[in-house]
């Protein structure tokens, strides 16, 4: 035990940096989920055949994006995306570059989740908005999101947790992070206790994220008691 503590103390600089790197990757991908994924999910909902504003071509295109991004195995996706990453951030190596494929996946995941959450909003809510003469932005901001908010929070929580897991393999493009640290300093140097400590750290992080998400969702859900 004391040997482990000593090693943790020895590596504390690297550990802190790896946590920071994971934090950066998470922040970037969640930003992408909210700024890109949520609008795409909302468009998927609105533009679907039989939806409030049917636009079949737009719906097919967005659906294709989400399906393609979600179907490619993540490791392959990271490698395949290298040219795009280089074009976007100027490099294909490092934490910022690692954020790019994560951002694409986070956006696609949250697009699908938010679409599904919006599909659960009762049809009567849309009918009400239409009868009150609401425009598309009003429908979204004053009717759909307020009614779907707890589901949107829960699905963002799920995306966040998936991103914790996805971000662990970003070591392949020098993204660093907690997972990378566990592999390089723990697994590859046979210091398994270091590796298990990092796994424990991630389990605790996931539990905290899930707890916070569940609690928030419950507090803002006033629909039924």
């Amino acid at each position: 035990m004391s040997a482990l503590l000593a090693r943790l103390a020895e590596y504390r600089g690297e550990i802190l940096i790896s946590i920071l790197e994971t934090g950066i990757m998470m922040a970037n991908s969640l930003l992408a989920a909210l700024l890109v994924g949520l609008p795409i999910g909302t468009l998927l909902y609105l533009a679907r055949p039989g939806g409030p504003y049917p636009r079949p071509a737009l719906h097919r295109a967005l659906n294709l994006y989400v399906n393609v991004v979600r179907s490619v195995p993540f490791l392959l996706f990271v490698v395949a995306l290298i040219p795009v990453t280089r074009a976007l951030v100027g490099t294909s190596f490092g934490t910022t570059a690692a954020s790019v494929p994560l951002a694409f996946v986070a956006a696609a995941l949250y697009a699908r989740f938010s679409e599904q959450t919006l599909l659960d909003v009762p049809e009567q809510t849309v009918e009400l908005a239409r009868s009150l003469g609401a425009g598309p932005l009003q429908l979204i901001g004053l009717f759909l999101y307020p009614e779907a908010r707890s589901g949107l929070v829960l699905s963002l929580t799920t995306v966040t947790i998936s991103m914790v897991s996805y971000s662990t393999i970003m070591g392949v493009v020098g993204g660093g992070g907690v997972g990378d640290f566990a592999i390089r300093y723990g697994y590859q140097t046979y210091e398994y206790d270091l590796m298990y400590t990092m796994i424990l750290l991630m389990i605790v992080a996931v539990m905290l994220i899930q707890g916070a998400g569940t609690l928030t969702a419950r507090l803002i859900d006033k629909r039924a008691r």
Binding site: Q124, L128, L132, P146, R149, S150, K222, R223, A224
Partner: peptide, 15 residues
């Protein structure tokens, strides 16, 4: 917007 509507299921926003 100049016409009011009342529904069978009330259609109130639960949140």
């Amino acid at each position: 917007r100049g016409i009011g509507m009342v529904f069978q299921q009330f259609n109130l926003l639960g949140n």
